[in-house]
Simulated assay, not measured.
Amino acid sequence: MQLRYNYRLYPTPSQRQALAKAFGCARVVYNDGLRVQQDAHAAGLPYISDAELQRRVLTEAKKTPERAWLAEVSAVVLQQAVADLNAA
C-alpha cells in the first residue's frame, strides 16, 4: 500500500518576499543562460559546458552593476537554474 501526503506552506510576509526574490533571480539566470546558448548555436559555436555557462551568467554577471543584485540570494538557487537549463 502506498501512502500519499499533502503539505501546504504558509510563509510569513518576509519569507514570501525572500522566496519571490529567489524565484525571480532564478528566472533571470535561466533566461540569460538560454540567450547565451541560443546565441552560440546561431553563431555555429560548440555547446557551452555547464561550468562555462555558470561562469558567464553567474560569476561575471554578479560583477556588473546591472546584475549585482544576484549576490543577494543563495548561489545554490542560481546554480540549480543553470543545471535545469542544461537538463532541458
Rank of each mutant, 00 (worst) to 15 (best):
Q2F: 10
Q2L: 12
Q2A: 11
N6L: 13
Y7P: 01
Y7V: 14
R8E: 04
L9F: 13
L9Y: 06
L9W: 11
Y10T: 07
Y10D: 03
P11C: 00
T12Y: 00
S14K: 13
Q15C: 05
Q15P: 03
Q15A: 08
Q15V: 04
R16T: 14
R16E: 12
Q17V: 13
Q17Y: 13
L19P: 00
A20C: 14
K21I: 06
K21N: 15
A22H: 06
A22G: 06
A22D: 11
G24T: 08
C25W: 03
A26K: 01
R27G: 09
R27K: 15
V28N: 15
V28L: 10
V28R: 15
V29I: 07
N31Y: 05
D32Y: 13
G33A: 11
L34K: 13
L34D: 14
R35W: 02
R35C: 09
Q37D: 02
Q38H: 07
Q38K: 14
D39K: 01
D39T: 12
A40I: 00
A40Y: 01
A40G: 05
A43D: 13
L45V: 01
P46E: 13
Y47H: 15
D50Q: 13
E52R: 03
Q54T: 03
V57D: 00
L58C: 02
L58E: 04
L58M: 09
T59E: 06
E60P: 01
E60S: 08
E60M: 08
K62G: 07
K62N: 04
K62T: 04
K63E: 05
K63G: 07
T64D: 06
T64G: 06
T64P: 03
T64K: 14
P65H: 01
P65K: 01
W69F: 08
W69I: 00
W69E: 03
L70D: 12
A71E: 08
A71F: 06
A71K: 10
A71H: 06
A71Q: 04
V73R: 03
V76R: 15
V77D: 15
V77A: 14
L78R: 05
L78K: 11
A81R: 03
A81I: 06
V82D: 10
V82A: 10
A83R: 15
D84M: 10
A88P: 00
